[in-house]
Simulated scan of single mutants.
Amino acid sequence: MVSKKAFTMIELVMVIVILGIVASIGSDIVLSLYNNYLRSRTINTLESKTEIVLEQIAKRLQYRIKDSTIARKADGSYRALAGSDSTYSIIEWISYSNESLLSNPPGWSGFIDLNDGNTTRPNLKTHDSNLSFASETMSALTDGDINLTVEGKEAALIFRTPYNAENFGWGNGNVNTLGVATLRVTKNNTDDDILIINATDVPNDIYEHYVLAHSAYAIVPEGNITGTDFNLTLHYNYQPWIAARNNYALGSTATLAEHVSLFQFKQDDTLIRLKLCIHDNNETGTGDRIAICKEKVVY
């Protein structure tokens, strides 16, 4: 007689229970690993994004005319960056036109020959300048809004001498105020190294060193700026020295970052310290909002 062996009901139930426990533990481990992967990927993405945005801002700030840098409130009021506090959410400045320098000879040399017979005010002799190249470059960068050959589309000439922030023509809101530091200039039609100051801008004093500018810049929080989820927008191609284009709302825009929770700036001596926090808006779906904060110093 052959005897048959089989699992008892109790043994089968125990096996099923044990397999269920193992499966439950395994799914929790898999879910935990997947969530950790999502968090790591999101953190890496946010770190890269935050660093890139800060670098974009810093690259533009490094060409700033330091005395022109201001902090502005959403209501349009402003003050010099050095005297601002955390209630000022917008940073704004004029940059010298680095792009129009890049030729041989340079688009503008940065030096005025005060002893040359052609420097007679409003004419300024600037030897070794290729002002036609500068004009073409500025026109291309501003969509034709700045052109050294057209009156009303002048670039700004700024002497390398100390100024107050108010001297650059910053207005409160939409108020048009032209500044004594930003002299509107065109080029001579026949001589490619003579700048001509607009007749109403001719100053009492002429200095040897100067820069040319074709644009101002503003970094503006937009959206729910009192909360922790707003966009950071770059405004460019506007000119405080031209009444019709002296407000950043009249220029071009580019979104630098979305889902920003913090943007702060302050000036320490000649340094600008930037702090930026960006979050993922809970894109991982784990219920937690992941945020990354970074700081950068601009000389």
Rank of each mutant, 00 (worst) to 15 (best):
D193M: 11
R160C: 03
N198P: 00
M9E: 01
W93D: 02
D288I: 11
L271S: 08
A254S: 12
T149R: 09
N231L: 06
N247V: 00
S27D: 01
R72Y: 01
K153W: 00
L33R: 13
R39V: 13
S48L: 11
L256F: 07
S77Y: 03
K187D: 04
G83F: 13
N167C: 06
A134E: 05
D143K: 11
V17H: 01
L276Y: 10
S86V: 05
K5M: 08
T177N: 05
E51R: 15
L38T: 05
S139M: 07
F7S: 08
W93H: 01
I278C: 07
S139K: 14
V180K: 12
N44V: 01
V260R: 06
G227P: 09
S40M: 10
I206R: 02
Q264Y: 09
D75Q: 03
R245F: 00
D128A: 13
W108F: 15
Y96E: 02
S109V: 10
D67V: 04
S252R: 14
N44H: 11
I91F: 05
Y34A: 12
E295H: 06
L131P: 11
T228P: 00
V175S: 09
L61E: 04
I278K: 10
A140Q: 11
E222D: 08
I10C: 06
F111Q: 11
N172L: 00
T233L: 08
E283C: 06
Q267S: 12
G152W: 05
H214C: 04
L101C: 03
E55G: 05
E208I: 08
W170K: 06
N281P: 10
F159D: 05
D229T: 11
N147M: 02
A23T: 06
W108E: 05
Q264W: 02
E222I: 08
A218R: 08
N204G: 15
P105F: 03
G287L: 08
T233E: 06
E222Y: 10
L276W: 12
Y96D: 05
N282E: 08
I90W: 00
L250V: 00
Q267F: 10
E151S: 14
D205F: 14
K294F: 01
P122R: 11
S103L: 09
T182N: 04
V297A: 09
F168K: 05
F133A: 03
L271K: 13
D191Q: 15
S95I: 01
T119W: 12
E166Q: 10
I225S: 12
D269A: 14
I206Q: 03
W170C: 01
S132M: 04
T226M: 04
V2W: 11
N35C: 01
L157N: 08
A291P: 03
N36G: 13
L46W: 05
G107K: 09
L157T: 05
S84A: 15
D113R: 13
E136T: 14
W241M: 00
S27K: 08
I146R: 04
P106L: 04
P221V: 06
V298F: 15
Q56T: 14
I65V: 15
L271G: 02
D143I: 10
K296Y: 13
S252D: 14
L81D: 02
T186Q: 03
S27N: 10
T270R: 13
E47N: 10
S86Y: 15
E151W: 07
L232H: 05
E283L: 12
N204R: 12
S139C: 09
I242L: 15
N35Y: 07
Y217A: 02
N164R: 05
A243P: 12
V185N: 11
P221K: 07
